[in-house]
Design a binder for these strands. Structure first.
Length: 371
DNA sequence: CACCCGTGGAG
DNA sequence: TCTCCAAGGGT
């Protein structure tokens, strides 16, 4: 019972730990666009954008998003293309799609406001353990540790925890649940994230600037760089890909990717993987025939770009194409569109395709593209 | 639980 | 050029 009243972190009392951390936070916390805000919608979207994404990357997206979608109902009313266009370049596009779905559910089931019922909020699509704890602690003062990579790294070092992965996550969650100050849980979480981002960094941590280094077991033993223990990483295969810019008069053909999976819902130029023994030109002709039922001929070679995704990388070859068959032309719809080059900025495209844009502009299609 | 899911910056 | 990895969630 007495231990519950004065929980400890190794040889460090929880009260001392939190007071030192919050004092440091009050002096040196970063001035971020969402800092000091307690509005659930704005904190929520900031947390979703920040998932696996750096603060400096998020800042301009966050600002533009709130201008374009000032409230949940603005999100719920928007078409998915508008949502994805606002998210274009941020990556992990399913985050945007799930947030869109969640906002529509809120309009339908929760009178248009982020539900203050914790379970109702937790059940919304895209709201996982971290986002739940972050929003609840910052906006509703629930004493929940928002366990992200920063908190895991900091606690692994303070307590010299050799576990990693889900075991480390559970230990950190359980430990901090008894430590987080009930009067400032949101500040505690944000202070931990600031500390992890600016002082207790993955590489070359600035232990000399750390408010709690005097009680850090990893620092005491001079082995800060051993924590947290790295997890196994899979090698990232490389895949050659070829696409065609298919022209019809002054318009070109784009298609929408399926809603699930890689780059779900974004638009792209038709094409596919280069099979073994196949030239990129052959790939374009084959893929366009297989997927669109369209016979095309390769015209000019546009260029080649490289791009790395989260778990594989590609070399992307692009070619201007023309018909060799007037039949079976794809019609404008939800999956295919004929657009002028000037319209292309209205559609959300993956980064790999954006790398082709200047090459296409600087290499205009031949005038005699038609049969 | 292992795997999938983007992008950009740092070193 | 290459590796690591950042305020995770869904399946």
């Amino acid at each position: 019972m007495e231990n519950d009243a004065t929980p400890r972190l190794g040889n460090l009392s929880a009260a001392r730990f939190t007071s030192q951390l919050l004092a440091w936070n009050d002096r040196l916390s970063r001035n971020l666009p969402w800092r000091g805000d307690r509005d659930p919608y704005r904190i929520w979207i900031s947390e979703v954008m920040l998932q696996q994404t750096r603060v400096e990357t998020v800042k301009p997206y966050y600002s533009r998003w709130l201008q374009r979608f000032p409230s949940i109902s603005h999100v719920a009313r928007a078409a998915e293309d508008e949502i994805l266009k606002a998210w274009e370049g941020l990556g992990y596009y399913r985050r945007a799609r799930l947030f869109h779905q969640a906002c529509k559910q809120i309009i339908r089931d929760h009178h248009g406001a982020v539900p203050d019922n914790p379970e109702a909020f937790r059940q919304l699509p895209g709201v996982g353990p971290y986002t739940y704890a972050a929003v609840r602690s910052i906006c509703f003062h629930d004493p929940l540790p928002a366990v992200d990579g920063n908190l895991k790294r900091i606690m692994a070092r303070i307590l010299a925890l050799s576990a990693n992965g889900s075991a480390l996550h559970r230990t950190v969650e359980r430990t901090l649940a008894t430590v987080i100050p009930v009067h400032r849980p949101g500040d505690f979480n944000q202070a931990m994230m600031d500390l992890g981002a600016t002082v207790c960094t993955p590489r070359d941590p600035r232990c000399g600037e750390c408010p709690i280094s005097d009680s850090c077991q990893a620092h005491f033993s001079g082995q800060v760089d051993l924590y947290p223990r790295p997890t196994k990483r899979k090698p990232r295969p490389h895949v050659p890909v070829a696409v065609g810019i298919i022209w019809r008069d002054s318009q070109l053909l784009i298609r929408r990717r399926p809603p699930e999976g890689l780059l779900g819902g974004l638009w792209e130029f038709p094409g596919g993987k280069v099979e073994p023994g196949e030239s990129p030109e052959q790939t374009v002709v084959r893929e366009v025939q297989e997927e669109l039922g369209l016979k095309v001929q390769i015209m000019d070679r546009i260029g080649t770009v490289r791009h790395a995704y989260s778990h594989f990388s590609i070399t992307l070859h692009a070619f201007h194409c023309k018909y060799t068959d007037r039949g079976a032309i794809p019609q404008n719809g939800s999956d295919y569109r004929w657009i002028s080059w000037d319209e292309i900025s209205h559609f959300p495209f993956p980064k790999a395709n954006h790398k082709l844009f200047p090459l296409i502009e600087g290499n205009a299609p031949p005038r005699d593209q038609q049969l």
